[in-house]
Amino acid sequence: MFPEFLIQSAAEVKTALMLRDQKLVLAESCTGGLVATLLTSLPGISDCFCGSAVVYRWDTKMKWLGVQAETLEKYTDVSRETAREMALGVLRQTPEASLSAAITGHLGPNAPESQDGLVCIAVGRRAHTDLSVPPELVSVDALQSDALREAGPVNADPTTGLSLRQERQLAVADQMLKLIAKALED
């Protein structure tokens, strides 16, 4: 059902979460829940995965996660600033989670040139068990999905039957899983 490299990346995240007794929550926009689907394809993931908010539109980002309208108006949803607010917002909304990751971007087609293929991924962490202490940002990256697609294991062969958008989704889902795994190493 999924490419083996994605299953492997998801399994690495699951192993790292379990070894460190951490619980993960996600906020996904341009991947539309793909990372959550990958994780939930693994037996036993419920021990360390809380869920995922698929927040595709501005209004949903604001109402579900507390992303500020000013952030979206000034930076748009394809920005580090929005990814940051998504990661911290989903973590605040999920008290049992200790780690969060969020992705937002524009995978095309018909994207504005400055946003075409651009994704932003943020990872947040709850450093204290006291929920009154705000979570902290671990990392936030802006990445070009085509560079990830070309450099990574996504098969860009046109005979695969995947659209450019689908190839980009696979590449950025893999990158998001890698950034989660990296955050768990720190």
Rank of each mutant, 00 (worst) to 15 (best):
P134F: 12
I121D: 01
V78W: 06
E70I: 00
L65P: 02
Q115E: 15
Q68T: 02
V119S: 09
P112I: 11
A127G: 01
K61M: 13
S100C: 06
Q115V: 07
G105E: 04
P135F: 02
G51W: 12
A69R: 10
R92V: 07
K61L: 08
D130C: 15
G108R: 09
Q115R: 07
A102N: 11
R80M: 15
A53Q: 14
P109R: 11
G89V: 05
A83K: 15
R80F: 04
S52F: 08
D130P: 13
K74Y: 01
D130T: 14
V133W: 01
V78I: 14
D116A: 14
S114M: 11
A101I: 10
A87V: 04
K63R: 13
R57V: 07
T104L: 05
R125M: 09
V90L: 05
V119G: 08
Y75C: 10
L107R: 05
T104R: 04
K63V: 09
E81M: 07
A97Y: 01
G108N: 10
T71K: 01
L88F: 08
Y56W: 07
Y75K: 13
T76Y: 05
Q93Y: 00
A127K: 05
L107Q: 07
T76G: 04
L65H: 01
L131E: 03
G51P: 10
V67P: 04
M86S: 13
L99A: 09
E81F: 04
V90S: 04
G89C: 06
L107T: 09
H128K: 02
R126C: 03
D59E: 14
T129K: 12
V119E: 08
V55H: 09
Q68M: 01
C48H: 15
E81W: 04
R84G: 00
T71P: 00
A122V: 10
A69K: 11
V54H: 06
L91N: 02
L99M: 15
P135E: 03
A87N: 03
P109V: 09
L107N: 06
Q93F: 00
G89Y: 01
G66E: 01
Y75Q: 10
C120D: 11
W58K: 02
V55N: 10
V123P: 03
V133N: 00
E113H: 01
P135D: 02
S132R: 11
A111S: 14
K74W: 00
D116G: 02
G66Y: 00
M62H: 12
R57S: 12
P112A: 14
Q93D: 03
A127R: 06
A69D: 07
L118D: 02
D77A: 14
V138P: 03
G105H: 04
K61T: 07
S132Y: 03
L65G: 02
G124A: 12
E73R: 06
L88Y: 10
E70A: 14
V90I: 15
L137D: 11
I103H: 08
W58Y: 07
V138T: 12
S98D: 06
N110V: 05
D59T: 09
W58T: 05
E81R: 11
T104V: 06
T60W: 01
A101E: 08
Y75E: 12
I121W: 00
S100F: 05
V54S: 05
A101D: 10
